[in-house]
Amino acid sequence: MTRRDFVGRLGAGVLALGAAGSVARGQGSPKVGIAQSEHVLVDGAVRPYTVGEMIDRAVMFVTGAASADAAWSGLFSADEVVGIKPNGLGGYGCSTDPAVITHCIQRLHGVGVRPESILLWEDRPNNLDACSLSVDEPLLGARSHLIQSDLTEPITHGSLTDRFFRPLVNDVDAVLNLPILKAHPICGVTLAMKNHYGSLADPSAQHFDRCNTPMVDLADMPFIRDKTRLVVCDGTRARIQGQAYGEPEYYPNVVMAATDPVAHDTVGYHIIEDERERRGIAPLKGSDLEPRYIAMAAERGLGVADLESIDYEVIDLA
C-alpha cells in the first residue's frame, strides 16, 4: 500500500482522520487521543489489560472508528510490512513498556499482518533489553533488530547526513512509532520525532543546534514522513527534567495516540510543561531547552504544532 492509497481510503470514509502529514495540508484538525487510567500502574508496574484498553480507546478516538479492530484495520493492511520503533533509552523504569509493544503487535495480528512482517528495532542492546526485547527471541513472531546490523549508505536530507536502518528505508511499508514521555537535556523534550534518533547510526552527531534543525530534517526524511502511520506513546510514566534516562519522576497514567507526530509532540510537550509548572520548575518555553523543532516541523508542513488547532481529548477510563 502506498501513502496515496492510504489517504484515498480515508477519503472513502474508512476513517475520520488520516495519515501523518495529511492533516497539515489543510484537511482538518489532527486528533490526539489521551487515554488515562489511575489503575494502569500497580506498584509502578504497567497492568497489561488496562494499558491495552487505553491504547484501543486512544486509537479509536484518533480514527473515529467504533471498535479497536476497525481502528487498526483502517490504519494498517494485512499485506504490509510494519516497522515498530519503541524507545528503550530511558532504562527499565522509563522505556516503552513491553505490554504496550505486545498489545500493538496483537492488534496488527488482528488486522492480518503476518508475524514475520512485523519488525522492531533499536540502536543499542541495552535499549532493546529495557523494552524486554531480544534479537534472539521474537516477540509474538516479530523479530527485533539492532540497527547496526543492517545500515544503509549515508543519506543526506537538508542538514542531516547519516546511515539508517536499511529495512526502514527499503522494506517497511508502515511505521508504528512507540515513544515515551520524557524531558531531554539538550532539546527539551523527546517524544515521537526524537524517537527516530534510534533509527540512525550516529545519533550523537545529530545533536547540533540543540537537535532542532536535524530533527526536522529527520522527520522530513521520506521513509519516515510518508511511512509513519501511527504514534502510540507510553505516557504511563515520565520524566520532566534532567536526563532522558533514569527512574520516572511523574506518573501521568496516560497513553497518547496520533497520526500526526507533530501534533502528538505538541501535546506531549504541553503535558511536560504543565507538570513542570505544577512543581515550580522553570518552563522550557523561552529557555535554551525550548523544543523549537516542533514549531519548525509544522512550518515544514509535517504536522500541526498549534495546540489550539489540535483536537485532543482526555479519555478517562478511571
Partner: peptide, 10 residues
C-alpha cells in the same frame, strides 16, 4: 486548565 487537568504552581 492544562492538558491533563488544572495547573497551578506549588
Amino acid at each position: 486548565q492544562g492538558i491533563l487537568g488544572p495547573v497551578s504552581p506549588p
